[in-house]
Amino acid sequence: MRVRGNPRAQVVRIGARLDAGTSAGVRERLHEALDSGEGDLILDLSKLEMIDATGLGVLVGAHRRAISVRRRLVLRGGATADHADPRGDPAESGAERGGSRGRGGLM
């Protein structure tokens, strides 16, 4: 993870994984960046390949902390449609694979 700053925003590049094994270090760096800078904190997720519930918790916690220090957390560079579902065609509905996307549920 790398932090770059400029007068109006900071950019934090997140690595390939944000999970139980990496979350403590990422959380600490995000808190440091939020507490020491001004303007938007931009999280560059373009290299992120895997995130679990712990990683999502880090992002939610960083958002809450950003609000408390009067900053804005911006997510940038997420997965594109062709990377979103490694199991097959991104246009294929979840119902065809036994999932619930085709019926309006979350997957």
Rank of each mutant, 00 (worst) to 15 (best):
M1T: 05
M1Q: 07
R2M: 05
V3F: 07
V3K: 11
G5K: 14
G5P: 05
N6I: 00
P7W: 11
R8M: 00
R8Q: 05
A9N: 07
A9K: 03
Q10N: 12
Q10F: 12
V12P: 12
V12G: 13
R13F: 09
G15F: 09
A16I: 01
A16Y: 06
A16W: 05
A16R: 12
A16E: 14
R17Y: 01
R17F: 03
L18N: 00
A20S: 03
G21S: 00
G21L: 00
A24C: 03
A24T: 08
G25F: 01
R27S: 15
E28M: 09
R29F: 07
H31S: 14
H31C: 13
A33M: 09
A33I: 07
A33K: 07
A33V: 09
L34G: 08
L34A: 10
D35R: 11
D35W: 07
D35G: 10
G37S: 15
E38V: 13
G39N: 12
D40I: 06
L41W: 15
L41A: 10
D44E: 10
S46F: 03
K47T: 09
K47V: 08
L48W: 01
L48Y: 03
E49Y: 01
E49I: 00
M50H: 15
I51A: 04
I51G: 04
I51W: 06
D52N: 07
D52L: 03
A53S: 14
T54H: 05
L56Q: 02
L59C: 05
H63K: 03
R65M: 08
I67K: 15
S68A: 13
S68L: 08
V69P: 09
R70N: 15
R71V: 08
R72Q: 12
L73P: 14
V74G: 01
R76G: 10
R76V: 13
G77E: 06
G77A: 08
G78N: 04
T80G: 11
T80E: 09
T80P: 04
D82H: 08
H83Q: 14
A84M: 03
A84I: 04
P86E: 00
A91E: 08
A91I: 00
A91G: 04
E92D: 11
A95G: 02
E96Y: 08
R97F: 10
G99C: 09
G99R: 14
R101T: 14
G102P: 11
L106N: 02
